[in-house]
Amino acid sequence: MAVVPLKLAKLINQNYSRVCPKLVQIVRPSSYRTSGFLEDLDLKTKYEVTKDPVDWSYVERALPPTLVPHPVKKDRYASGWKPQAENLTHMPYFIERTKNHMIPVYLHRDMRGTRKTTYVRKIQGDIFKLHKELVEFLQKETIYPIRSQVNEFTGIIRIAGDYVNAVKYWLEQRNF
């Protein structure tokens, strides 16, 4: 029995299958990577090609958006989410919103989930002033000294402990 590629095997089997039913063995590729591309099987399935704009509007509805949409301006948002104020140029520091229009304050957990660190990101301007005011506010909530670190180059403030909601509240009060 000869070992030949798939296409040749099909040809031989088509022409000589009546003479000798098991003339050749079809090679099965050993893995997905080594297998060839799918061949045109000459199937004659009847189908209709349409360009109906109504149908296509439903396709577009199903497709995911390529960009994060901008929020629509309203007087009040039911969920409590607030957009950033527009007149913040007079402030000595600025915190940019994330691409999802949220305040960039996060909780990092490490040491197998036991150590909690609050990260305030995307800070521009006088980061030391912001750090001073923030620590002053947070110090009221605890008797222990707030341990924190400023990274001026990356614009990040790290605070030991979980103060995410407190920091977000403080920033929201200042319309960031």
Partner: peptide, 8 residues
Amino acid sequence: KVILKPEE
């Protein structure tokens, strides 16, 4: 930008 609909 077309849709193929089977007729079989």
